[in-house]
Design a binder for these strands. Structure first.
Lengths: 234, 234
DNA sequence: ACGACTCTCGCACACTGTGCGAGGGGATTT
DNA sequence: AAATCCCCTCGCACAGTGTGCGAGAGTCGT
C-alpha cells in the first residue's frame, strides 16, 4: 500500500560504486540524440549504439524510457537564465527570464511534446519555480497570489512557444518557398477571407518571420506583466 | 519543386462515391479511442478492430496516422463554445470562451501531446481564430495588435491547461492518497523548503484541488485581460 | 459481358520498448 | 589462493507498432 508517484525524482538513484557508465553520460547522449533527431528519433537501441553499448544496458541506470525523458526534460530547465531579482528589479528579471526560457525551449523543440505529458518535478524545474516565487514575492505579491502570478507567467511562455515549435518543425520538414506556402494557405483558409487576407498581408510585408514572432512574444509578455502590475496595486 | 505542406487540410479529400466507410465515421472512432485509452492507446489495428475492418483499410481514407490525428485534433476545437461578441461584450465573450476551451481540453487530455507537435490548420481551428479576431477587433484593437491579443490569450489558456493535463494524468495513473503524495513531495523538494512548505500548506488547507485550479485559472485570465484592456487605452 | 474504378485486407518488413537470464569482471571474504 | 558475491553488460525473444504492396471483391458505366 501507499504507492509512490512513479518518477525518477521519487526514487533513490543507483548507488553507483565505480561503474563504466553513469547517468550523466547517458543523459548527455540522450540530449544529443533528442536535439539532432527529435523525440521520434530517440530509441533505446540508437542511444545504446551512441554510447557504444547494448540497448538494454541503459536499463541498469534508468527504470524505463520515460524516466530517461524526465531526466532530459529537467536538464533543459537548468539551461534557463534567471537573474537575481534583487539586482535588476522584478520586471526586468522576469522579462529576461521569459526570453531566455523561450530561447532554450526553441533550441530543444522536443520539449514541446513533453510539457503536456509529464509534470516538472526535477531539481532544476523546482529551483526555477523557487526563484520565480522569490522574484514575485519581492515584487510585492503575497500568499497564493505568488503562485498565481508564477503560474500565469509560465503559462504565457509555454503557450506561446509551443505552437511556435509546432510551426517551426512543420515548416522545416520540407523546405517551402513563399509561393507554395501561399498556395497552401489559400486552399486551407478559403472560407475565412479576413484571416487569409491578414496572413498574406503579413507574409508579404514582414520578411523576417523570426523578429515578428519575437515582437509578438514581447507584446504579450508586456501585456501579462502590465496585468500583474495592475493586480499588484489593488 | 514547389512542395506542399503535408497536411490533410492541404489535400483534397477522397471523392467518396458511396463507400462503406467514411472519414467522419473513422474520426468518430478515433476520438472514442483517444478519449478512452489516450494517445498511446490509439493504434491502427485497434482502430480497425473497433470499426470492424482491417487496420490498413483506414489508409484508404487517410494518408497516415498523423493525418488522422490532425482530423481528431481539429474536431476538438470545434467543441469550444465561442459566443457572439456583439451580444456579450468582448470581455465576457473572451472569458466564457477561455473557460470553455479549458474544459474541452481537459476532457480530451491527449490534445496536450499534439499542441507542440502540429499546427492547427483545420477549419474549426481557423474558425475559432477568425471569431476571436472579430472579438478583439470589436474590442478596439487594430492591425497587428488584434493578432497579438489573440496569440496572448490562447497562449495563456494553452500554457495553463497543458501542465494541468500533465498533472492530472500523472496523479490518476496510480490512485494516490494524501499521505503518499506528501511523502513524495518531501523527497523531491527537500532542497527547496519554501516551495515545500507552500505545497504542503496548500494541500492541507485546500481540500478541493479542482476548484483551486479553477480559481487560479480565473486569476490569470483576469490578469491577462486587465493587461489587454490597459493596452487598449493607450 | 467486359473493363474500369472503388474499396478491403492479409502479409511482410523494419522497428519499437523492455523482461529475462546467462555471463564477465572486480572486490571482498574465507 | 580460492571461493563467493555483487555490479554491470548484453543477446535473445516477445508483443506490439506504422505502413507499402499487391491480390482480390464488389459495383458501376458501357
Amino acid at each position: 500500500m501507499s504507492k509512490q508517484i512513479s518518477s525518477v525524482w521519487a526514487r533513490e538513484p543507483r548507488p553507483t560504486r565505480t561503474p563504466g557508465r553513469s547517468r550523466e553520460e547517458i543523459v548527455r547522449a540522450t540530449l544529443d540524440l533528442l536535439d539532432t533527431e527529435g523525440l521520434d528519433g530517440l530509441s533505446m537501441r540508437k542511444l545504446g549504439a551512441r554510447l557504444g553499448s547494448g540497448a538494454t544496458t541503459i536499463y541498469w541506470y534508468v527504470e524505463n524510457k520515460d524516466e530517461l525523458l524526465e531526466l532530459a526534460y529537467d536538464h533543459v530547465w537548468g539551461e534557463i537564465a534567471l537573474p537575481v531579482p534583487e539586482d535588476l528589479g522584478w520586471r526586468d528579471t522576469i522579462t529576461t527570464f521569459a526570453h531566455s526560457m523561450r530561447r532554450v525551449m526553441l533550441f530543444h523543440p522536443w520539449i514541446g511534446s513533453l510539457i503536456g505529458r509529464m509534470p516538472a518535478l526535477g531539481p532544476n524545474a523546482l529551483s526555477m519555480s523557487d526563484r520565480l516565487r522569490r522574484t514575485f514575492a519581492l515584487a510585492g505579491f503575497e500568499g497564493l497570489d505568488i503562485d498565481c502570478a508564477n503560474a500565469t507567467l509560465t503559462a504565457y511562455v509555454f503557450g506561446t512557444v509551443m505552437p511556435e515549435i509546432a510551426w517551426r518543425s512543420y515548416l522545416s520538414g520540407e523546405q517551402l518557398d513563399q509561393e507554395s506556402m501561399r498556395e497552401t494557405f489559400e486552399k486551407v483558409a478559403k472560407d475565412f477571407p479576413d484571416l487569409l487576407e491578414r496572413v498574406i498581408e503579413v507574409n508579404e510585408k514582414v520578411s523576417d518571420t523570426d523578429t515578428l514572432r519575437e515582437t509578438s512574444f514581447a507584446f504579450g509578455l508586456a501585456t501579462v506583466l502590465d496585468g500583474l502590475e495592475a493586480r499588484l496595486r489593488s
